[in-house]
Design a protein around this nucleic acid. Sequence first.
DNA 1: GTCTATAAACGGATAGAC
DNA 2: GTCTATCCGTTTATAGAC
Lengths: 204, 204
Amino acid sequence: MKLKATKKPPTATECDRTIDIYNKAAEIFQEQGFHATSMSSIASAVDLTKAGLYYYVESKEDLLYAIINFAMERLETLVIEPSRTITDPHKRLLSIVTRHAQLLTEGNKAITILTDEVDALKPKHRKQILDRKRAYFELVRGTLDALRVDGRLRDVNTTVAAFSLFGALLWLPRWFRGDGPLTSEQVVEQTVGVVVGGLLKGKK
Amino acid sequence: MKLKATKKPPTATECDRTIDIYNKAAEIFQEQGFHATSMSSIASAVDLTKAGLYYYVESKEDLLYAIINFAMERLETLVIEPSRTITDPHKRLLSIVTRHAQLLTEGNKAITILTDEVDALKPKHRKQILDRKRAYFELVRGTLDALRVDGRLRDVNTTVAAFSLFGALLWLPRWFRGDGPLTSEQVVEQTVGVVVGGLLKGKK
DNA sequence: GTCTATAAACGGATAGAC
DNA sequence: GTCTATCCGTTTATAGAC
């Protein structure tokens, strides 16, 4: 899955070029880190000079924000929204963890930048992203609280449990390789088993 | 717990100064990231000019390596070595996770840099750290394998389980605040409960 | 749209005075 | 030990030709 433009661009040609740039930039930011990446290296990766690149993007931070915002939108569309309608807390938790693990193992670079590079955003952009992240966190913690009310949660603090869950999930892109011995399907299934299964009461 | 010098310095005065510098640098690297931190900003944080700072450190990478190496030594001394002598896999896992969680919540900045900034090291230094990290990972995965042999591990892949465990642990410094509602003792206890308890067979 | 050229600031690192 | 001054490469970003 690749980055897509969020606003209608003036021409199809410009649209494609911009998306190419976003994708390549996401790839390099993810490999080297935002601060270790220069606009020149992004430019040459998309066969432009630095000045040519600035025709398409306003600034380096602007480029980062476009990538992070895209990733946040995908998280909201593919993980959060489909889960909010599920009322059973166990089913909702399974849906969230499964979909998020799928997103993290499918190879999209932007989603890991959402985890690692938010600090590099300007305060206004950073706050906007952090607010949406917090809402997601509260959804998960609330789901664990609901699981507790149903008597299906083990005796654990839901704040610690929610952060542990996110730690295990967000660590996925740091070790999982699509060309390794485990398929992404296996890893998603196993991660759901470890993370959700580990929080549930009852005989195992 | 603060950074300590690993080699005997020529004078006690220089020793203290160097440790001050390491500690402050670790703090700033952890807050802003290695690449986003300039030597000038470290210098002024320890009330020196940039040139003055270079009297104590050879290079920026050298400073990072000193910090990361110190953190790795603390991990080995306080977590890995005390656990290697424990033969019962359940007790060994409890020891590892408890001690590592304690290390991560005690407020030392260097230990989080060990997680986040190894890529910024020169190849030689990086390889040296990654080898020691790998040995630690294999200790944990091997412990999970032994738990499986004893029939006490849930039906999960030990590679995925080990990485999930590390994800949950290494995420701790990103959210835990010593001045928040939860004490470090509570968080350590709860983390052990979620992470180790979630992997064990048997009624909960 | 894409280029060459360049501005203006900042980076790591060093020379040499004191 | 610590400073001032400076070297020199790199950075983000822009001006202006084509």
